[in-house]
């Protein structure tokens, strides 16, 4: 596919997709624009520049469920959401070795509360480092909410600060029922 010039792109109707907390989606469609608002939450935007596949997840990790011992922070679930995103991109012919990451969010909106934004940002950075996925852009932490827009087919991210009251609930939603480690023996 040939690159679009900015004027041509402006006349194409964009398909706006909101990525809420706990979601991970990938696409190759140049009309798609993924967006979300982040307070303490972190969004990971991944992009494979050769396959032109991109995806975004959105997470807010806090305390793990009761059956998870010895952890203050539900990094297991964070790992699941990262892997979900990567697998969706692999399904669209992306290659993990070519992926580049952009991280946004992780703000600490309330100075009187524990810095959960910083903890989520640290988790995301550590994951990318461990998986050897380069982080080419980050707009993390601070004290303000952000609105981000990501175009998965081009990898472009736009982040801007917004009033804190526009950020959705800052409570972690916790794991869905499907993420409780079900075992099935054949």
């Amino acid at each position: 596919m040939t690159a679009m010039n900015p004027i041509a792109a402006a006349t194409i109707e964009m398909l706006r997709v909101t990525i809420v907390q706990g979601e991970a989606k990938a696409s190759t469609d140049p009309r798609v624009e993924m967006s979300t608002i982040l307070g303490s939450c972190v969004a990971t935007c991944l992009f494979d520049p050769v396959a032109r596949v991109g995806g975004m997840n959105h997470f807010l990790l806090a305390e793990p469920p009761r059956h998870v011992r010895n952890q203050q922070f539900d990094s297991d679930y964070g790992l699941f959401l990262m892997e979900l995103l990567i697998n969706q991109m692999l399904g669209l012919r992306a290659s993990k070795g070519r992926m580049r990451a952009r991280l946004c969010g992780g703000a600490n909106l309330n100075p009187d509360l524990a810095p959960i934004g910083t903890a989520n940002a640290a988790f995301a950075r550590q994951f990318l480092d461990r998986e050897r996925i380069p982080c080419v852009f980050e707009d993390l932490e601070g004290t303000q909410a952000r609105r981000i827009q990501f175009r998965p087919a081009s990898g472009q991210v736009r982040a801007r600060l917004v009033p804190a009251e526009t950020a959705p609930t800052q409570k972690p939603l916790g794991r869905p029922q499907s993420a409780l480690g079900t075992v099935e023996l054949f």
């Binding site: 679930y77 993420a179 409780l180 480690g181 075992v183």
Partner: peptide, 17 residues
């Protein structure tokens, strides 16, 4: 395959399996 476990795993369930 002998069985199927969904991530994120539950350590108790995994080790029991």
């Amino acid at each position: 395959a002998t069985g199927w476990i969904v991530k994120p795993f539950d350590t108790d369930k995994l080790t029991a399996a």
